[in-house]
Design a protein around this nucleic acid. Structure first.
Lengths: 248, 248
DNA sequence: GCTTGTGTGCGCGTTTATGCGCGTTAGATT
DNA sequence: AATCTAACGCGCATAAACGCGCACACAAGC
């Protein structure tokens, strides 16, 4: 049996039953538990199922249930991202007003944020807001239309709210980072929110792994010099030398 | 059985019955009380149920009085709620701008909403917004501070956003419904959001099971005559006769 | 034929989940 | 208000699940 077929079989079993254990899968497919675990990891990363302790559940079930602590752990071995987030989180100061952009990297950042006095976090992502609230942080959500794919808020309401705020510092993700093209995002509306939020922030940080350097996405939201980049891993020499790039 | 499944089972048992004891859960699921307690702790932290001495209650029940005991147990009239929500959902018309209040009853309502042309839903709850987006509804979220307990948005930003909107119709939950005291909520800030959102809505509906009639919570957000009540079950005769009460 | 890469199984140290015992505490009873 | 009982939380022990490294098998490419 092809590995690919086995993956599909797992997905359909999970879909049909709602949830299955590693053992059940191992027996049904005639491979060891190790292999099943690796498969589940792959499928979880591809967002085709949700891996949980002991087995896997379908996404629908996991979505209502979403155990927030489990997903993070799945790719926790990504040392780079962990280090980046730890470094970034240390930049938050007491009594400050902090903006957190939507995106998977900033989501990871939330888990590292310290419990400081009188800090308020503002975000354009409902998912991020929930996580912040779970960690008992003072949390403010921008208004606006909810984009289902990214759970981010966009549109005039979001922008209008931002216009009333001024942040001490903020953290953004970026799909592309290039010296000439600056920071770029895949979507016009989201780029607009990023642009305006940056405009209202004193200390601006982009957190990203090394893979984004040299990449260019459709819509620019800031110049390369507009933010300090916190990154890790194999950063191209050209960028590593720049004084607004911090490699950890 | 997967631990994850057990958590789901607990939630659905709590939702259906309104409240359950640790013992009942332990017997039903074939684990010890210790495990159930740990599960309840997890679920309570995730705001999926409310843990109380002796067992757990659904969030909405815990809301009326902060620490209630398991003494008087009543069914949440699951059927009633379903009928109420189905009736309410039928009131949404195409090409309308609809407000959905936070709360467990309105959450259930979302599952019944039809896919009509050109309907936009606005809500003050991040949880509700996620569900709406999952169902591919056009969804707008009010801004504001996120209250962790209820996942509702409150404060000046929420109110400012509401001031720019005018809804064709809207649906609210209410902790108390009484002829003299009107509609009441447990929290000042949430009551304010309810009040302002109602003020900007043409057709106002409160959806509630019969148990809320005669109850009074601390903060009033509307007069009894301000909304049409959609309810079911054993409504006191005094209220059943009123012409803004629809019993299904 | 040899190398290279991928997928799988196995062993081992680590983490997580569960059950049990015991001292403490919250509610009910009087 | 005093007392009593059941629920509670904590620590510990155990077993299962887990992740990782390594070895081997097999296939593809030079």
């Amino acid at each position: 049996m092809l590995a690919e077929d086995r993956l599909n079989a797992i997905v359909s079993m999970v879909q049909r039953a709602g949830s299955v254990t590693v053992q059940e899968l191992a027996e049904a497919l005639g491979v060891t538990a190790s292999t099943i675990r690796r498969d589940l990891q792959t499928l979880d990363r591809a967002h085709r199922i949700a891996k949980v302790h002991g087995g896997a559940t379908s996404l629908e079930r996991a979505h209502v249930t979403r155990d927030l602590t489990l997903n993070e752990r799945s790719d926790l071995h990504n040392d780079d991202k962990e280090r980046i987030c730890a470094r970034a989180a240390a930049l938050v100061e007491p009594e400050s007003f902090v903006y957190i952009d939507s995106g998977s990297t900033t989501l990871r950042l939330i888990e590292h944020l310290p419990h400081l006095e009188d800090v308020t976090y503002v975000t354009d992502s409902v998912l991020h807001a929930q996580r912040l609230a779970l960690r008992d942080m003072r949390t403010v959500v921008l208004g606006g239309e909810l984009k289902p794919e990214t759970e981010a808020l966009v549109g005039p309401d979001a922008l209008a709210t931002l216009d009333r705020y001024n942040f001490n510092c903020g953290f953004w993700g970026s799909n592309g980072i290039a010296a000439e093209q600056g920071f770029t995002a895949p979507d016009i509306e989201e780029a607009q929110v990023k642009r305006i939020s940056m405009r209202h922030t004193a200390k601006r940080f982009v957190i990203s792994d090394a893979s984004k350097f040299g990449m260019v996405a459709p819509v620019k939201f800031a110049d390369f010099r507009d933010a300090t980049i916190i990154t890790a891993g194999e950063v191209p020499a050209k960028y590593r030398a720049m004084d607004n790039v911090i490699t950890v």
